[in-house]
Write a protein that binds this DNA or RNA. Structure first.
Lengths: 270, 270
DNA sequence: GCTTGACCTTGACGCAGCGTCAACCCCGCA
DNA sequence: TGCGGGGTTGACGCTGCGTCAAGGTCAAGC
């Protein structure tokens, strides 16, 4: 007669494992001796070695019983299925390796290379850090929402960076954010550039495509909160620019729409 | 402002996952609105997308925080370590596949091919099923205990099967087990064969090697319980044969030892 | 204003396969 | 008889959530 420790030693498992197998009903509870110890004999060792053999081959405990009782045919079928599962798990882990290698290769977290290229170029053209970070967060959201279209978007955006108007805008924004406070003249100048870009976008028909790309108004709201997250100063700046844009006949910043300017035309009505 | 469901949808995870991340402190708990709902904004979506990106690449949640905060160098190091882990898991699964393929290829559970070959040959030579099953279980125990020596043992055992004495023993055992009851004549005949084999083993020095191979007397006891598991009839048979063997100057069956026979010599003293 | 259905809340169990205490009992030896 | 090294049951921990359970809330249609 064997104690649980001896059984475990002969079978090459731990005592904890044996008790676990009892608990899940894989191994029947044996007789107890006078003091409550479980008592085992050779057949238990044999069964336990079989269980261990299967478990070490990756068979889930829940299926071990079935396999122990299976005939040759059933056994072969079950084994084939378990092998399929193992292959699937291996493929998944290999996919994990691929992804993590990509991350290590410099993909900013959650952004494809095309977007990080774009952001790098913005920075190189003098865009202030705060603005680049806002762009980055916005593009993380967009890339998650429209993963299939992100590459087209980037082609378009890269083309924009060649436009002298965009260069001027980036410089203006840089100037605006450089000091602690912003001058009205600088704000007006920035708004002028923005308005001019809006006209150009309207002329090229881009505004219509924008409506297709961003049909979801709540998503636009979400993008808007990126600005809020950038801090109160950025919000104030955005609000001021929006006011100035309305005077120039445009509402919205993320999603532009033509509006009637209040009061006169281009006149400072504040 | 977003609810947890909207946050989850934008980030591509489940609400349950978001709450889980709160629970483990991976994502800070946000403000609540008047009715106790969690309220989120864009930065939460951004962080959550980053978390998902890492998690989908196989980074354990416990390390995600660290990776989000890491600089390029630390990030690369951590990624390398995670890749090592993934490689290890893949290797383990491949090992599982190898083993399960072996099992499917016909290895009886927990026994190498050499032993199943031996058992098959025993059966072919007319050994009764009950005896072969006892042998099988005994060899499962031995193979688990002495995995490195099992092949040598089998070479020796296979040689035995060529011995005419062993053939006679198998036939005798078959005859003994064939009926419901066993005749004294058959028992005596079987004991004679056993005694002759013992003499032969002693002459070839095999008994000494047996002492080296089975130093553990408790292991011999364990092997003995294999007989008990085969049923009361087998136990009775074994006991009777042992008595007869003692008369012929041998004790034990699994581990033979020379003894003084009681009373006369080869005379039926029962 | 009331119902309905979708969404929110906290809390808790479940999964695989045990590892690892904790608190207590039992056995053999000096 | 005391001690040290076993044994026993019970329960929590780990990973990453899924899935009830039992409500409270919100928006919309009647």
């Amino acid at each position: 007669m064997l104690t649980i420790g001896q059984l475990a030693a002969y079978s090459g498992v731990t005592t904890r494992a044996v008790r676990h197998y009892h608990q899940i009903g894989l191994l029947p509870e044996p007789e107890r001796d006078a003091s409550g110890y479980r008592t085992y004999a050779a057949p238990d060792v044999v069964v336990l070695i079989r269980i261990r053999t299967l478990a070490e081959a990756g068979v889930p405990l829940a299926r071990v019983q079935e396999l122990l009782a299976a005939d040759d045919e059933g056994f072969a079928g079950a084994v084939a299925e378990i092998d399929r599962r193992l292959r699937g798990e291996i493929k998944q882990l290999q996919e994990h390796r691929r992804r993590i290698a990509q991350l290590a290769a410099g993909d900013s977290l959650a952004l494809p290379a095309s977007v990080t290229d774009y952001l790098d170029r913005m920075r190189a053209l003098g865009a202030p850090d705060l603005m680049v970070e806002m762009e980055r967060d916005a593009w993380i959201l967009i890339a998650a929402q429209f993963p299939d279209q992100i590459e087209e978007f980037m082609v378009e955006k890269q083309a924009y960076l060649d436009d002298p108007l965009m260069r001027r805008l980036l410089r203006s924004m840089g100037d605006l954010l450089a000091g602690d406070d912003e001058s009205e003249a600088l704000l007006a100048q920035t708004a002028d550039v923005l308005a001019e870009m809006a006209e150009q976008a309207a002329a090229s028909g881009e505004l219509d495509r924008q409506d297709d790309a961003l049909p979801d108004s709540t998503f636009v709201d979400l993008l808007d909160t990126v600005v809020q997250a950038a801090g109160p100063r950025m919000v104030r700046l955005r609000d001021r620019l929006q006011e100035l844009m309305v005077e120039r006949g445009w509402s919205g910043i993320i999603k532009l729409e033509r509006v009637d300017p209040p009061g006169g035309r281009g006149v400072n009505s504040a």
